[in-house]
Amino acid sequence: MAISGMTGFGRAEGALAGWSWAAEARSVNGRNLEVRFRGPPGFEGLERAAREGAQGRFQRGQVTVGVQARRAEGGVAVRINFEQLERYLAAGEAYVGAGRAAPPNLDGLLALRGVVEAEDAIQDPDALAELEAAMAASIGAALDGLLSARREEGASLLPVLMGQLDRIAELTAQARDTAAGQPAAIKARFEARLKELAGEAASEERIVQEAAAMAVKADVREELDRLAGHVDAARALLSGDGAVGRRLDFLTQEFMREANTLCSKSALGALTATGLDLKATIEQFREQVQNVE
Protein backbone atom coordinates (compact mmCIF):
# COMPACT_ATOMS: atom_id res chain seq x y z
CA MET A 1 0.00 0.00 0.00
CA ALA A 2 1.66 3.21 -1.14
CA ILE A 3 -0.73 6.12 -1.41
CA SER A 4 0.76 9.58 -1.03
CA GLY A 5 -0.50 12.80 0.42
CA MET A 6 0.05 16.19 -1.17
CA THR A 7 1.53 18.17 1.72
CA GLY A 8 5.19 18.10 2.69
CA PHE A 9 8.59 19.77 2.77
CA GLY A 10 12.14 18.88 1.72
CA ARG A 11 15.45 20.71 1.99
CA ALA A 12 19.01 20.11 0.80
CA GLU A 13 22.19 22.17 1.00
CA GLY A 14 25.39 22.19 -1.00
CA ALA A 15 28.65 24.02 -1.65
CA LEU A 16 31.15 24.15 -4.51
CA ALA A 17 33.83 26.51 -5.85
CA GLY A 18 33.24 29.22 -3.28
CA TRP A 19 29.45 29.02 -3.60
CA SER A 20 26.96 27.73 -1.05
CA TRP A 21 23.25 27.19 -1.50
CA ALA A 22 20.10 25.74 -0.04
CA ALA A 23 17.26 24.17 -2.05
CA GLU A 24 13.78 23.84 -0.59
CA ALA A 25 10.71 22.08 -1.97
CA ARG A 26 7.26 22.24 -0.46
CA SER A 27 3.76 21.35 -1.65
CA VAL A 28 0.10 21.72 -0.77
CA ASN A 29 -3.10 20.21 -2.15
CA GLY A 30 -4.05 20.85 -5.76
CA ARG A 31 -6.29 19.28 -8.37
CA ASN A 32 -3.44 19.19 -10.90
CA LEU A 33 0.34 19.43 -10.74
CA GLU A 34 1.52 23.04 -10.64
CA VAL A 35 5.24 23.76 -10.23
CA ARG A 36 6.62 27.16 -9.23
CA PHE A 37 10.32 28.01 -9.10
CA ARG A 38 12.43 30.81 -7.71
CA GLY A 39 16.20 30.72 -8.07
CA PRO A 40 19.33 32.83 -8.26
CA PRO A 41 20.02 34.91 -11.40
CA GLY A 42 22.46 33.47 -13.84
CA PHE A 43 21.39 29.87 -13.32
CA GLU A 44 18.50 29.64 -15.78
CA GLY A 45 18.86 25.89 -16.18
CA LEU A 46 17.76 25.28 -12.60
CA GLU A 47 14.11 26.00 -13.37
CA ARG A 48 14.03 23.23 -15.92
CA ALA A 49 15.65 20.86 -13.43
CA ALA A 50 13.03 21.77 -10.83
CA ARG A 51 10.09 21.31 -13.19
CA GLU A 52 11.31 18.04 -14.66
CA GLY A 53 12.19 16.76 -11.20
CA ALA A 54 8.74 17.57 -9.83
CA GLN A 55 6.96 16.13 -12.87
CA GLY A 56 8.95 12.92 -12.54
CA ARG A 57 7.93 12.46 -8.90
CA PHE A 58 4.43 13.90 -8.51
CA GLN A 59 1.14 13.94 -10.36
CA ARG A 60 -0.88 16.36 -8.27
CA GLY A 61 -0.33 19.26 -5.90
CA GLN A 62 1.04 22.79 -5.92
CA VAL A 63 4.82 22.35 -5.68
CA THR A 64 7.10 25.29 -4.92
CA VAL A 65 10.86 24.95 -5.37
CA GLY A 66 13.30 27.62 -4.31
CA VAL A 67 17.09 27.94 -4.38
CA GLN A 68 19.03 30.52 -2.41
CA ALA A 69 22.71 30.81 -3.35
CA ARG A 70 25.56 33.05 -2.28
CA ARG A 71 29.20 33.41 -3.07
CA ALA A 72 31.85 33.60 -0.38
CA GLU A 73 32.90 37.10 0.69
CA GLY A 74 35.75 38.45 -1.35
CA GLY A 75 34.80 36.32 -4.30
CA VAL A 76 32.44 38.85 -5.86
CA ALA A 77 33.80 41.55 -8.14
CA VAL A 78 31.70 44.58 -9.11
CA ARG A 79 31.75 46.50 -12.37
CA ILE A 80 29.82 49.45 -13.78
CA ASN A 81 27.94 48.89 -17.00
CA PHE A 82 28.76 52.19 -18.70
CA GLU A 83 26.67 51.38 -21.76
CA GLN A 84 23.59 50.99 -19.63
CA LEU A 85 24.48 54.14 -17.69
CA GLU A 86 24.76 56.16 -20.94
CA ARG A 87 21.34 54.90 -22.02
CA TYR A 88 19.77 56.19 -18.81
CA LEU A 89 21.54 59.57 -19.20
CA ALA A 90 20.43 59.90 -22.82
CA ALA A 91 16.83 59.01 -21.93
CA GLY A 92 16.70 61.70 -19.23
CA GLU A 93 18.69 64.43 -21.02
CA ALA A 94 15.65 66.05 -22.65
CA TYR A 95 13.73 66.18 -19.37
CA VAL A 96 16.67 67.75 -17.53
CA GLY A 97 17.23 70.31 -20.31
CA ALA A 98 13.55 71.30 -20.24
CA GLY A 99 13.64 71.76 -16.49
CA ARG A 100 11.18 68.96 -15.97
CA ALA A 101 13.62 66.87 -13.93
CA ALA A 102 16.58 67.54 -11.69
CA PRO A 103 20.06 66.56 -12.88
CA PRO A 104 20.81 63.00 -11.78
CA ASN A 105 23.26 62.37 -8.96
CA LEU A 106 25.76 59.57 -8.73
CA ASP A 107 23.91 57.67 -6.00
CA GLY A 108 20.72 57.67 -8.01
CA LEU A 109 22.46 56.54 -11.18
CA LEU A 110 24.25 53.68 -9.47
CA ALA A 111 20.98 52.49 -7.98
CA LEU A 112 19.36 52.07 -11.40
CA ARG A 113 18.84 48.54 -12.54
CA GLY A 114 21.70 47.12 -14.61
CA VAL A 115 24.19 49.90 -13.89
CA VAL A 116 26.11 48.11 -11.18
CA GLU A 117 26.71 44.45 -11.94
CA ALA A 118 28.20 41.85 -9.67
CA GLU A 119 30.69 39.82 -11.62
CA ASP A 120 29.87 36.68 -9.75
CA ALA A 121 28.75 35.05 -12.95
CA ILE A 122 31.19 32.31 -13.78
CA GLN A 123 33.01 33.04 -17.02
CA ASP A 124 34.11 29.47 -17.67
CA PRO A 125 31.15 27.57 -19.25
CA ASP A 126 32.40 24.25 -17.94
CA ALA A 127 32.67 25.62 -14.38
CA LEU A 128 29.20 27.12 -14.67
CA ALA A 129 27.78 23.81 -15.90
CA GLU A 130 29.44 21.96 -13.03
CA LEU A 131 28.08 24.37 -10.45
CA GLU A 132 24.60 24.31 -11.97
CA ALA A 133 24.63 20.51 -12.00
CA ALA A 134 25.54 20.47 -8.31
CA MET A 135 22.68 22.85 -7.51
CA ALA A 136 20.31 20.73 -9.61
CA ALA A 137 21.36 17.68 -7.60
CA SER A 138 20.40 19.54 -4.42
CA ILE A 139 17.03 20.35 -5.98
CA GLY A 140 16.58 16.64 -6.65
CA ALA A 141 17.49 15.82 -3.06
CA ALA A 142 14.99 18.40 -1.77
CA LEU A 143 12.31 16.91 -4.03
CA ASP A 144 13.16 13.44 -2.73
CA GLY A 145 12.68 14.77 0.80
CA LEU A 146 9.34 16.20 -0.23
CA LEU A 147 8.37 12.87 -1.79
CA SER A 148 9.20 11.05 1.46
CA ALA A 149 7.14 13.54 3.46
CA ARG A 150 4.17 13.10 1.14
CA ARG A 151 4.42 9.32 1.41
CA GLU A 152 4.51 9.59 5.19
CA GLU A 153 1.34 11.65 5.04
CA GLY A 154 -0.21 8.98 2.82
CA ALA A 155 0.76 6.29 5.32
CA SER A 156 -0.98 8.20 8.10
CA LEU A 157 -4.06 8.81 5.93
CA LEU A 158 -4.47 5.17 4.91
CA PRO A 159 -5.82 3.74 8.21
CA VAL A 160 -8.17 6.72 8.54
CA LEU A 161 -9.60 6.18 5.06
CA MET A 162 -9.87 2.41 5.53
CA GLY A 163 -11.65 2.93 8.83
CA GLN A 164 -14.15 5.24 7.19
CA LEU A 165 -14.76 2.71 4.42
CA ASP A 166 -15.34 0.04 7.07
CA ARG A 167 -17.92 2.33 8.67
CA ILE A 168 -19.64 2.93 5.32
CA ALA A 169 -19.78 -0.84 4.73
CA GLU A 170 -21.18 -1.37 8.24
CA LEU A 171 -23.89 1.26 7.72
CA THR A 172 -24.72 -0.18 4.29
CA ALA A 173 -25.28 -3.62 5.86
CA GLN A 174 -27.35 -2.04 8.61
CA ALA A 175 -29.45 -0.24 6.03
CA ARG A 176 -30.01 -3.49 4.16
CA ASP A 177 -31.33 -5.18 7.30
CA THR A 178 -33.58 -2.24 8.13
CA ALA A 179 -34.87 -1.88 4.56
CA ALA A 180 -36.16 -5.46 4.67
CA GLY A 181 -38.99 -4.18 6.85
CA GLN A 182 -40.09 -1.47 4.41
CA PRO A 183 -42.73 -3.47 2.44
CA ALA A 184 -44.62 -4.48 5.61
CA ALA A 185 -44.41 -0.95 7.01
CA ILE A 186 -45.64 0.56 3.73
CA LYS A 187 -48.55 -1.91 3.57
CA ALA A 188 -49.59 -1.23 7.17
CA ARG A 189 -49.38 2.53 6.70
CA PHE A 190 -51.33 2.44 3.44
CA GLU A 191 -53.95 0.09 4.87
CA ALA A 192 -54.54 2.32 7.87
CA ARG A 193 -54.82 5.41 5.70
CA LEU A 194 -57.12 3.77 3.17
CA LYS A 195 -59.45 2.40 5.84
CA GLU A 196 -59.49 5.82 7.44
CA LEU A 197 -60.77 7.26 4.17
CA ALA A 198 -62.86 4.41 2.75
CA GLY A 199 -63.82 2.49 5.84
CA GLU A 200 -64.74 -1.16 5.44
CA ALA A 201 -65.10 -0.64 1.67
CA ALA A 202 -61.36 -0.95 1.30
CA SER A 203 -60.62 -4.42 -0.05
CA GLU A 204 -57.62 -6.47 0.95
CA GLU A 205 -56.80 -7.04 -2.72
CA ARG A 206 -56.60 -3.32 -3.43
CA ILE A 207 -54.49 -2.76 -0.32
CA VAL A 208 -52.04 -5.44 -1.41
CA GLN A 209 -51.82 -4.12 -4.99
CA GLU A 210 -51.26 -0.50 -4.01
CA ALA A 211 -48.83 -1.37 -1.23
CA ALA A 212 -46.85 -3.59 -3.62
CA ALA A 213 -46.55 -0.73 -6.12
CA MET A 214 -45.37 1.61 -3.40
CA ALA A 215 -42.89 -0.94 -2.11
CA VAL A 216 -41.35 -1.27 -5.58
CA LYS A 217 -40.77 2.50 -5.73
CA ALA A 218 -39.23 2.40 -2.26
CA ASP A 219 -36.96 -0.56 -3.01
CA VAL A 220 -33.38 0.47 -2.10
CA ARG A 221 -31.60 -2.79 -2.83
CA GLU A 222 -30.04 -1.39 -6.01
CA GLU A 223 -28.63 1.63 -4.15
CA LEU A 224 -27.26 -0.60 -1.39
CA ASP A 225 -25.65 -2.94 -3.93
CA ARG A 226 -23.93 0.02 -5.59
CA LEU A 227 -22.75 1.35 -2.24
CA ALA A 228 -21.19 -2.01 -1.44
CA GLY A 229 -19.54 -2.07 -4.86
CA HIS A 230 -18.13 1.43 -4.35
CA VAL A 231 -16.65 0.35 -1.01
CA ASP A 232 -14.86 -2.56 -2.72
CA ALA A 233 -13.60 -0.27 -5.49
CA ALA A 234 -12.27 2.29 -2.99
CA ARG A 235 -10.50 -0.40 -0.97
CA ALA A 236 -8.86 -1.70 -4.16
CA LEU A 237 -7.64 1.79 -5.05
CA LEU A 238 -6.19 2.34 -1.59
CA SER A 239 -4.46 -1.03 -1.74
CA GLY A 240 -2.76 -0.23 -5.03
CA ASP A 241 0.05 2.09 -6.08
CA GLY A 242 0.12 5.42 -7.84
CA ALA A 243 -1.97 8.57 -7.70
CA VAL A 244 -5.52 7.52 -6.89
CA GLY A 245 -6.90 10.76 -5.48
CA ARG A 246 -8.91 11.72 -8.58
CA ARG A 247 -10.63 8.33 -8.78
CA LEU A 248 -11.35 8.34 -5.05
CA ASP A 249 -12.84 11.80 -5.39
CA PHE A 250 -15.14 10.53 -8.14
CA LEU A 251 -16.15 7.57 -5.99
CA THR A 252 -17.14 9.87 -3.11
CA GLN A 253 -19.55 11.61 -5.46
CA GLU A 254 -21.09 8.26 -6.34
CA PHE A 255 -21.25 7.32 -2.65
CA MET A 256 -23.18 10.49 -1.88
CA ARG A 257 -25.51 10.02 -4.83
CA GLU A 258 -26.59 6.59 -3.57
CA ALA A 259 -26.92 7.79 0.02
CA ASN A 260 -29.16 10.67 -1.07
CA THR A 261 -31.37 8.31 -3.07
CA LEU A 262 -31.54 5.95 -0.09
CA CYS A 263 -32.82 8.74 2.14
CA SER A 264 -35.35 9.92 -0.43
CA LYS A 265 -36.80 6.39 -0.80
CA SER A 266 -36.86 5.64 2.91
CA ALA A 267 -40.23 4.90 4.48
CA LEU A 268 -38.81 4.12 7.91
CA GLY A 269 -37.34 6.48 10.46
CA ALA A 270 -34.59 4.00 11.29
CA LEU A 271 -33.59 3.72 7.63
CA THR A 272 -33.53 7.50 7.25
CA ALA A 273 -31.32 7.78 10.34
CA THR A 274 -28.92 5.23 8.89
CA GLY A 275 -28.91 7.10 5.59
CA LEU A 276 -28.01 10.33 7.38
CA ASP A 277 -25.18 8.56 9.21
CA LEU A 278 -23.98 7.30 5.84
CA LYS A 279 -23.98 10.81 4.39
CA ALA A 280 -22.02 12.16 7.36
CA THR A 281 -19.40 9.40 7.07
CA ILE A 282 -19.12 9.84 3.31
CA GLU A 283 -18.55 13.56 3.79
CA GLN A 284 -15.76 12.82 6.28
CA PHE A 285 -14.27 10.39 3.78
CA ARG A 286 -14.48 13.04 1.04
CA GLU A 287 -12.62 15.58 3.17
CA GLN A 288 -9.75 13.16 3.76
CA VAL A 289 -9.64 12.15 0.09
CA GLN A 290 -8.82 15.78 -0.81
CA ASN A 291 -5.40 15.16 0.77
CA VAL A 292 -4.59 12.12 -1.40
CA GLU A 293 -2.43 12.53 -4.48
Rank of each mutant, 00 (worst) to 15 (best):
Q288K: 13
G242I: 14
L251C: 08
T281L: 08
Q253Y: 05
V244L: 03
V244R: 06
D277F: 09
R257M: 10
G275H: 11
L237C: 08
K279I: 11
T281N: 11
S239K: 15
E258Y: 02
N291E: 00
L262F: 13
N260S: 14
V292E: 06
F250S: 03
T252D: 12
T252R: 03
I282S: 01
D241K: 10
S239E: 15
L237Q: 00
D249K: 04
G275K: 11
T261V: 12
R247Y: 07
V292M: 06
L251S: 01
A267R: 14
V244Q: 07
A234I: 02
E287R: 12
G275M: 07
A273D: 11
E258W: 08
L262V: 11
L262K: 09
A243G: 06
T281E: 07
L238E: 02
R257T: 12
A267W: 13
I282C: 04
T274F: 04
C263H: 06
D241H: 05
T261Y: 06
D249M: 01
D249G: 10
F255S: 06
N260W: 00
L271M: 08
S266K: 08
F285C: 05
G242Q: 04
A273M: 10
A259Y: 04
G275E: 02
A243M: 13
C263I: 05
E283Y: 05
T274H: 02
E287N: 00
T261C: 10
K265H: 13
F285M: 06
L237K: 11
G275F: 03
L268G: 07
Q253P: 10
G240Q: 11
E258F: 09
A234Y: 01
G240W: 13
N291A: 09
C263V: 09
A273L: 13
L271K: 01
V292H: 04
A280I: 11
Q284T: 14
K265F: 14
F250I: 02
L248R: 05
Q288C: 13
D241I: 02
T274E: 03
T281A: 14
Q290E: 00
A236Y: 08
A270N: 10
A280R: 13
E287P: 01
L276K: 05
A233L: 13
D241R: 02
N260E: 04
D241C: 03
E287Y: 07
T274R: 00
D249N: 02
T274L: 09
E283F: 03
F255P: 04
S266M: 11
R286D: 04
F250H: 03
L271P: 06
D277H: 12
A259S: 15
L268M: 15
V292D: 10
K279A: 02
E283N: 10
L237V: 07
L268A: 12
D249L: 00
Q253M: 08
D277Q: 15
L268Q: 14
V244E: 01
A273T: 12
N291P: 06
T274I: 14
F285G: 04
K279R: 15
D232T: 15
L248I: 07
